[in-house]
Nucleic acid binder design. Structure first.
Lengths: 137, 137
DNA sequence: ATACGTGCAAAGAATTTGCAGCGAC
DNA sequence: GTCGCTGCAAATTCTTTGCACGTAT
């Protein structure tokens, strides 16, 4: 609840019901929703909120390092309440996105740096497969 | 030159100057261009070609397994003359995209499968950094 | 000769922007 | 009271589609 308020205050951004709502919906959701999905989740309680406001809020939070926008090769961005870049697995059947711990993949940057002589700063790792739920059904 | 002609014939698709041109421009380019860039490269020699034709050709080639569309989190798709999914490094300064050999990253699927109990089928690995050219300048 | 492909312009989808009025400070 | 924020609608950007005409087979 309160990291958001603190950070907004520090940056002299107003604390509005819409911003609180967008942040909390994302926080309490494990699916890595896109802007449209967040908008739909908010509509029942905030019938006048607009999609533009959702986008503006998400953009602000990403700038402030509170969340991150992720691109999984779909047509729209998904949003992740964890601002740290980390690997994801996406189920090709139900489209659920799960997080993976970074530490298993830390040595890859060095492998790449050696292969191509780049100063590697970031890695985006996305795995696709069938989750255990979808696999048994 | 000729894998294209053979595959088009096999699928009873017409061999048009536009299709040949789109394919060759992509083949002879190392930057992993997007549709707009391909269109611009073609314009001098094909002043009447349209962007829609470029898109339609690229879509056809991708369906036929001749090339692949890749999404690196930018606003537009890039196209890769290599149809096999493989890792990429992108230079954050000059936006050049280079290929990486898959074999160094083959064991990752098993790591993920163990971590989350997915049947992992595909991995999209993209690394970001500064290339040696940009680093020295 | 007969589809199929081209190229224009218009449609679509996701996201961004302009701006008048409102509300947090 | 001020100025940033909201929410509407319009603009933008990338991509796709519809359709009349041209062209590869």
């Amino acid at each position: 609840m309160e990291a958001l308020v603190k950070v907004l205050k520090n940056h002299k951004c107003k604390i509005t019901p819409q911003r609180l709502a967008v942040y909390h919906v994302l926080r309490n959701n494990k699916d890595h929703p896109n802007a449209e999905a967040i908008f739909k989740m908010l509509e029942p309680n905030y019938p006048t909120i607009s999609l533009a406001t959702v986008y503006k809020s998400l953009e602000l939070f990403a700038e402030l390092g509170l969340i991150q926008a992720i691109n999984l090769g779909e047509n729209s961005f998904r949003y992740d309440p964890n601002p740290k870049v980390h690997p994801h697995v996406i189920c090709s059947k139900c489209n659920k996105v799960e997080d993976l711990p970074e530490e298993y993949f830390d040595d890859l940057k060095a492998v790449v740096a050696k292969l191509v002589n780049y100063k590697v700063t970031k890695q985006h790792l996305t795995f696709y497969g069938i989750c255990s739920d979808c696999n048994t059904n």
